[in-house]
Design a protein around this nucleic acid. Structure first.
Lengths: 207, 207
DNA sequence: AACCACATTGACCAGACTGGTCAATAGAAT
DNA sequence: ATTCTATTGACCAGTCTGGTCAATGTGGTT
């Protein structure tokens, strides 16, 4: 539970929260407009500042909010027992695409927030994001099983190629999600497509 | 020669042009500030509007300017006789990284310009960018020689993996260029590194 | 009905910033 | 000294900023 808010209180904040995530993700802290947020959320200006007493407080709330979602619906669900790089990535990529479908702006927001240069929030952000991001990333990459690679393969570069492929696929999938609506049929075809890419990579690097 | 300007006239505009490319690339048309441009360029407000009579005219000048640079220093230098996908991509990637070192904001600017939603310039932009981008992209991808791929390889997906790897490498290189200065020593090491990636991919897909 | 507690509104504020203007100045060439 | 252009920066009206607050709406309790 974030900041000890009840479910009711969170539910009432939701239109504002979603609109704010979108606006901050698009424009960053300084360039984001509270007027645009309330317009998008369909509420009055006063209400935003009734719930969140300042733009800065709203932004910092969103950092906690998104980190909590990422932790709960992404990081915690990754099976760290799985040491095979493809199985691990497949799992992570599918979880991430799932999350983007449900919370379209969460990853974009936290990415923008973590890199913000705005003096007003920079310090407060870094202490919060560094913990999770550094920890979860290092945990994600460490202790990967590379024993199944073909002998003679340049493992370091092979892993980077795998990562870039996953990132590329993710970007393509995200772009498609922005236009189409999510349906089960799409999902099956999409999954088969994704697995086909993994098969190509496996055929490359595994013996 | 752009708009029939002499070399002297172009040279005097240069600080403004570079500052404007940077500002538009970062913020897009609407959010970019002419005040920020003149501050970065180190010239007075009046001078900008003496050379370019409006923000819109400045922006459209930059579109022509960058398209001409891209054409002259990138598109025209690509050897379309080369049908091998790796040789072609190696050539293009190296040209592009060269260009980013010399004109850091040109590709970012034209990317932002081509996708701008701003009503004021959208129409004028699209007629200019579509010609070059569509043509050069299609020419780049067509007639690629795939005969050297190992039999049984999923060629379509293999090509996408190659593209995503090139894009990933390019992003990494661009990020490094932003911090370090360009020196020949770096360049040799970088080229060897890049070729090592190509070798890994060739080992994957070629027989 | 009367009262209360709280949710919600939107007109309003001072101040910052916007693209753009223009009379005044600086500097070079004659 | 004169004339030319290159360059400046104070200034403009207008828009947008984050934030305030008295007023109004709403639903529940007596």
């Amino acid at each position: 539970m974030i900041s000890g808010l009840s479910d009711l209180e969170l539910a009432k904040r939701e239109p504002i929260v979603n609109a704010a995530l979108k606006e901050f993700a698009r424009k960053g802290y300084d360039e984001a407009s509270t007027n645009e947020i309330v317009r998008e959320a369909g509420v009055s200006k006063g209400l935003l500042f009734h719930y969140f007493h300042s733009k800065k407080e709203l932004f910092l709330f969103l950092v906690d909010y998104t980190l909590e979602i990422i932790q709960r619906e992404f990081v915690d669900l990754i099976n760290t027992e799985e040491r095979d790089i493809f199985a691990r990535y497949r799992q992570a990529a599918l979880l991430k695409i799932d999350m983007i479908a449900r919370h379209p702006y969460v990853f974009d927001f936290i990415g923008v927030a973590a890199l913000t240069e705005s003096a007003q929030v920079k310090e407060a952000i870094q202490s919060r994001t560094h913990t999770l991001l550094a920890l979860s990333l290092s945990r994600f990459f460490d202790q990967m099983d590379t024993s199944r690679f073909r002998p003679g393969i340049d493992v370091k570069r092979a892993m980077r190629i795998i990562i870039w492929t996953m990132e590329g696929y993710e970007r393509a999938a995200q772009q498609e999600l922005q236009t189409k609506t999510v349906s089960q049929l799409d999902y099956d075809a999409f999954l088969a497509d994704f697995d086909a890419y993994i098969d190509v990579l496996k055929g490359c690097f595994y013996q």
